[in-house]
Computed example of a mutant assay.
Amino acid sequence: MQAQSIAGPSDLPRWFRWFGIYTRTIEGVAGVSMAVILVIMIVQVAARYLFSGSIIWAEEACRYLLLWQTFLLLGVAYQRGEFVMLDLLPYMLSSRARLVLKYATAIPVLIFLAVIVLKGFDYASRFERQKIPALDFIWSSLTGANAGVSVKWVYICVPIGAALLALHVIADLVVSTIRHRRGIDDPPPVVDMGEQL
């Protein structure tokens, strides 16, 4: 399935422009979370090798941040066409057949993502009573009280990421349909073999 860039002022209706703002926001959140992970891990390594100590919550906090970052960025990766795909067959077809193929491959993907969203929220709710030890430790160190943040907020990143990915797939179908109706054909991707080596 070939994703297209969801941008271009001449291609899209005005109501669709918010997608660029959303994408930049998600990328900004990902950048900040990666910076936080980097700082935490640098401090953890320095504490361990220079001071023979350890930050006991560092690995857990970085793991949770990385999980959220991964699932939030699934849709952006799809939008940029960074998923593994086979482009040979679609570009051997006519524009109309390519659009039909895109719909035929998107529908099972959307059904799968809908199942992930529904089951993911159900699964996450099962961990309502289990607390996140890292946040409890940090919060109790700072305030003396337990934070009481549920592990549910870690697991819920999966259905949220699946829902965002589904929105990207739907947006890609809308963009492809609009471009097809306007007679705008996507050029085949150009692969630079120098980059592959």
Rank of each mutant, 00 (worst) to 15 (best):
C157V: 13
V109L: 00
G31T: 11
L167M: 15
I40Y: 03
R181N: 15
V174S: 10
S176P: 00
Q2V: 07
G28Y: 05
P187T: 12
Q44Y: 04
Q4G: 12
V43S: 05
S176I: 05
Q69H: 13
T23F: 14
M41V: 10
R96L: 08
W68L: 07
R48S: 09
R182D: 10
G81M: 00
R24N: 08
P9M: 13
S10H: 14
L164K: 00
T177D: 14
L101S: 04
K102T: 07
P133V: 09
L86W: 10
P13G: 08
R181D: 05
P13M: 07
T70K: 14
M85D: 14
L12I: 15
L110K: 03
R182Y: 05
I37C: 04
S5A: 14
A162P: 00
S5R: 11
I37R: 00
M41N: 07
I116V: 15
L86G: 09
S125M: 15
I26Y: 01
M1E: 08
M193I: 10
A134D: 00
V109K: 00
I111E: 09
S140H: 07
A46G: 06
L167H: 10
R96N: 10
I160T: 12
V36D: 04
A7V: 07
V115I: 15
A46C: 13
I42N: 04
V36Y: 01
S140W: 03
V29W: 01
L66A: 15
F112A: 15
P108Y: 06
L142V: 06
Y91F: 13
C157F: 10
S10T: 12
L118R: 12
Y22K: 08
E195S: 08
Y22W: 14
I178R: 11
A104P: 03
W57V: 05
S140E: 15
V36T: 07
T25K: 05
V45H: 06
F16S: 09
I178A: 14
F112I: 11
A104C: 13
V109Q: 05
M41R: 03
L118Q: 11
